[in-house]
Write a protein that binds this DNA or RNA. Structure first.
Lengths: 223, 223
DNA sequence: TCAATAGTGTCTGTTAGACATTATGGA
DNA sequence: TCCATAATGTCTAACAGACACTATTGA
């Protein structure tokens, strides 16, 4: 993120770091001294690193821990404002385990997704696409499990899915689907959480690989 | 695609153009004189154009007609060979209506996907991702309809879907799903295609918008 | 007539979602 | 005791896929 060179850089890598916080997603932003505002952490790439490596390095350096998941979202191009003067930026989403300590210094801070300050046009686009990408690709990747401690209750797991997907799920259906997918196994521990019946703890233990979804769906096709 | 400047360009836009041809997907390649081989059509961007506009312009110029669908696939980065010396390339997929005439000159040619000559590492990655992107996003976009003439038989439509998705579909289920989605309406014309009972012609006429797919699926989650 | 393709009806297994019920703790 | 939460069972509607059957043409 150094802007020592006033030189035009070829492109930047911008990372949208998300973490569960207070039952919603929080976004990590960096201070933009030049504009006395906030921005996504970004970097001009090192020659020789792959895009993914560079993005992962940014996430790791800023949060002090490895992201649970990181994936490219899209390249966003010209005609949009960006803290750099690079003609394009490649956006990444990273999901950071909950409870990650506040990033060092006051140059970074977490913001609730709804309470985040306005960003430049290009970074705003990247954030919007990043959240959509998480929700689209969630069910192809066991991200949720890496955001939880090794032992968790099924309610916690469901809440994590709901947070990442941005919608409520049906409890019985959720558990049936979990069981059918052979993803978790029960431990012999139970946890009492205030009121109500204690919940059994489970651990992530994928056993089977299922064939992809069947059939055709014409959902949303009418456009 | 001009390589007049030996200068390093910031990035390139590479377009994977696909069209139905002989019951399989065909890929449009350009001659690479410098390497006496073939390559994806690519271009260094104009300042001021968006990525999408540049990609669409490439597709239109090369094929002489507007693509039926075009979408960004991904940016592919460092450490991979590319006809340019740009550090990254942004890949796009374009679907071109069938029956598009051969591109002008002998600098371009269509190749069946399986019969295409080997490309550089980076472009090979882009082609692989492009085909996967078509198959992933097909059911969110009415691409298939734009590849067919305004009036078509349901068998033709199904074959188009099978071609784009790369898998066989069940006839009765396909038609039921079509009907449920209110996407087509019958005309009063019929077409006799050699043997067998003539098929009724349909036209694309989306009427309803359906809610997204429901529930959670944990398919493929065990990884 | 036979072969080939279009189009439809019926059955079955699966599953999402709704709802109800039991289980088990804390207040 | 009442309340809150966990966990599970049952019912229904929707739907994918299999299969069979009818319809209508060309050879």
């Amino acid at each position: 993120m150094s802007r020592e060179q006033t030189q035009q850089t070829a492109y930047t890598i911008d990372v949208v770091m998300l973490t569960p916080q207070n039952d919603q997603l929080a976004l990590l932003l960096a201070q933009d001294e030049a504009r006395s505002g906030w921005m996504l952490p970004w970097e001009a790439p090192d020659a020789g690193s792959t895009l993914d490596n560079t993005a992962a390095a940014i996430a790791t350096r800023v949060t002090g821990t490895s992201p649970a998941w990181i994936e490219q979202v899209a390249a966003v191009g010209d005609g949009m404002m960006h803290p750099s003067n690079a003609p394009i930026s490649v956006g990444f989403v990273a999901i950071v385990p909950m409870g990650t300590p506040e990033p060092r210094g006051d140059r970074f801070a977490w913001f609730g997704l709804d309470a985040a300050p306005a960003l430049g046009e290009r970074q705003q686009t990247i954030v919007r696409d990043a959240v959509a990408a998480v929700q689209d690709r969630m069910d192809l990747s066991p991200v949720a499990f890496r955001l939880l401690p090794p032992a968790f209750t099924l309610s916690e797991l469901q809440q994590m899915y709901e947070l990442l997907l941005g919608k409520r799920l049906h409890k019985a259906s959720f558990r049936r689907a979990l069981q059918a997918a052979w993803l978790v196994e029960p431990t012999d521990e139970w946890r009492s959480e205030g009121r109500g019946r204690p919940a059994q703890l489970y651990r992530y233990a994928p056993k089977k690989r299922r064939k992809g979804r069947r059939g055709v769906r014409f959902d949303l096709l009418a456009g």
